[in-house]
């Protein structure tokens, strides 16, 4: 058997399966999106681009789009910022390998928790009457703070949970990456009179530019799929303060409206927007890293 044939034969089943699963569901969504199907009645008609045109006049849709964008920015930047700060801190202060490994192990626990479990834990922590965070706030004379019921705080409060889960995980990855860096440029920087923060800002972190971009992209993709976390913690509320696109699509299509054609149109739009956005970001990131 030639090498090419072997490669083809082994790849075809997997790619075929993936393509079927992805294409069939996308095709299904397109099919739904050009109809006016609802869960209430079995009748439906072909309506063409009607659902898409309606979306452009839907203010709640644009609100969800905005919330999604804010959610992406806050969680991606927050996760990376926390990871960088903690990784540098541990790298500089904890020198014993055993202690380092114990910290890494502890930092891995949050991301191992199912999203729903993490969401419930933090809902209790945030609780105005029972929560330990409000108890601590009370000690310094603040509160009680309605973390999840205050529209100006709710999104940030949920984002904190996401950053807690992923930021600590990324800290471990970054710390391990920093440990693999050659010592010599760091020592050269020390001899070049660089302070500790300068060594990291100008030498170690730029040397990790490539991995940092990859981590940012992974997190950006992951942040798009935070439905479960937000759904359990706030359900999109208060009002629509934490309603991201996937939550709105769910509310429209399944929960209250049952307008699955409208929700399908929304999902398709989300697919297009994210594909275009990520392609641009990916290309820009690669150019910047080289």
């Amino acid at each position: 058997m030639t090498r090419k044939r072997f490669v083809t034969l082994t790849l075809v089943p997997a790619i075929g399966l993936l393509a079927t699963l992805a294409l069939v569901s996308i095709a299904g969504a397109v099919w739904f999106a050009v109809m006016n199907r609802t869960l209430r009645s079995p009748d439906y008609d072909f309506v063409g681009a009607y659902n898409f045109l309606r979306l452009l006049r839907d203010r709640r849709f644009f609100n969800a789009l905005e919330i999604s964008a804010v959610w992406e920015a806050v969680t991606v930047i927050g996760t990376l910022a926390l990871a960088v700060v903690l990784a540098v801190l541990i790298f500089e202060t904890v020198k014993k390998p055993l202690t380092r490994n114990l910290i890494c192990f502890a930092f891995l626990v949050p991301v191992l928790l199912p999203r729903v479990a993490a969401a419930f834990i933090w809902r209790f922590l945030y609780s105005p009457s029972l929560g330990v965070i409000n108890y601590l706030c009370g000690l310094v004379g603040i509160g009680p703070v309605e973390f999840l019921a205050d529209p100006s705080l709710a999104l940030i409060s949920v984002a904190v949970v996401d950053i807690w889960q992923w930021g600590l995980f990324f800290t471990v990855i970054l710390l391990k990456l920093m440990e693999t860096l050659p010592r010599d440029p760091i020592e050269a920087a020390m001899l070049d009179n660089a302070r500790t923060w300068e060594i990291h800002a100008y030498v170690t972190l730029p040397m990790l530019k490539g991995p940092l971009i990859s981590l940012a992209l992974v997190k950006a993709v992951e942040s798009l799929r935070s439905f479960d976390l937000i759904f359990v913690m706030t359900g999109g509320g208060p009002g629509t303060a934490t309603e991201t696109l996937d939550l709105y699509a769910y509310q429209m299509g399944i929960n209250m409206g049952g307008r699955i054609s409208y929700a399908s149109a929304m999902s398709l739009l989300l697919l297009v927007v994210t594909t275009v956005a990520f392609t641009i970001i990916w290309k820009a990131g690669k150019k910047w890293a080289s």
Partner: peptide, 13 residues
């Protein structure tokens, strides 16, 4: 003091 390393230790970026 200034030092020259075996591996050159230049800042690659």
């Amino acid at each position: 003091v200034a030092m020259v390393f075996q591996s050159y230790a230049l800042y690659p970026h």
